[in-house]
């Protein structure tokens, strides 16, 4: 009696799952296409190379050179990565190879807490701690910009925001190394450090590269914490103490304002599209590396 009802419910359930799947899978394309559609007016009037590599940002005069923003983004995220690499690697090695159980448990809890902190709080912390610190360094280095709001401050803050994310990946990687491989190496008379350096790090090297690539991608897209400390000046930064203006900050600060300027909307949409493409490329590369490494296992 209930057969047909159950049948339809079953069918409904299935189609509901398929529909959600299709929506999720198509989201990146839909976002990309709508951004492309909106940035089209600028793309047809100005060659793309000129938009990317020109430093001339004068929206009121119709000049939309995005290079200062792209360059700031690259520098800030690379700085963040450079600062983050030694800390995350050292901590991951310590937590997985040397720390007694209880310390390793405490550290993991701290990392999880860090990972859960909203990035606006990291931004505030940057303003009250990092910016004054950088300002002092800038003063003693006789830098033109001594305010402390700089790409260095942004680099430090972005390193902190991405640190827990990367560290968790690294810890998982180190733990994926079988204990017996470690024992086999030690049994040949290698010291603990030789084992880590020559065998464990070598074994998971592709994974480490992938983890840092994903970290870089996250740093590239970090918005609020960065825009709070980076200074937001449209220029090509000439030192690490100079202010910068990364792409996400451009979008967050300006979208919705001055929209009467012709093609301004298009320029912002284009920078959003570029941000999206760059981040997707980073993630794609990281997954390629992981796949390559899994096939070799």
């Amino acid at each position: 009696m209930n057969f047909s009802l159950r049948y339809y419910i079953e069918k409904l359930r299935k189609s509901w799952m398929i529909i959600s799947l299709v929506i999720i899978l198509s989201l990146p394309f839909l976002i990309g296409i709508s951004l492309l559609f909106k940035s089209w007016p600028l793309l047809v009037s100005t060659p793309i190379s000129e938009i990317i590599f020109s430093s001339n940002w004068m929206p009121t005069k119709g000049n939309f050179g995005l290079w200062p923003f792209i360059f700031s983004s690259i520098v800030v995220s690379l700085l963040g990565l450079l600062i983050m690499i030694p800390f995350t690697l050292a901590s991951a090695i310590y937590i997985t190879q040397f720390a007694p159980n209880w310390i390793s448990k405490v550290l993991r809890t701290v990392i999880d807490i860090l990972a859960g902190i909203p990035s606006v709080i990291f931004g505030l912390w940057g303003i009250i701690v990092i910016v004054p610190m950088v300002s002092e360094w800038a003063t003693s280095a006789n830098s033109a910009n001594a305010s402390g709001y700089s790409i260095l401050a942004a680099g430090i803050v972005v390193a902190v925001t991405t640190l827990p994310f990367v560290l968790n990946m690294l810890i998982e990687l180190f733990e994926s190394v079988p204990r017996e491989l470690k024992e086999s190496t030690l049994a040949m008379g290698a010291s603990h450090w030789q084992t880590i350096k020559d065998v464990i790090l070598k074994k998971i090297r592709p994974g480490i590269i992938a983890a840092f690539t994903l970290g870089l991608s996250k740093a590239f897209g970090e918005t609020i914490a960065v825009l709070m400390v980076v200074g937001n000046v449209v220029q090509i930064p000439d030192s690490i103490f100079a202010a910068g203006y990364p792409l996400p900050a451009l979008l967050a600060n300006n979208y919705g304002e001055m929209m009467s300027i012709p093609k301004y909307d298009s320029a912002l949409m284009l920078s959003a599209l570029m941000l999206l493409i760059i981040v997707i490329l980073f993630n794609y590369f990281a997954h390629k590396v992981i796949r390559f490494y899994q096939s070799k296992m």
Partner: peptide, 13 residues
């Protein structure tokens, strides 16, 4: 004391 373990664990490389 050379060790041969249960499963082979070749070094990376």
């Amino acid at each position: 004391m050379g060790l041969l373990s249960q499963r082979p664990h070749p070094l990376p490389g």
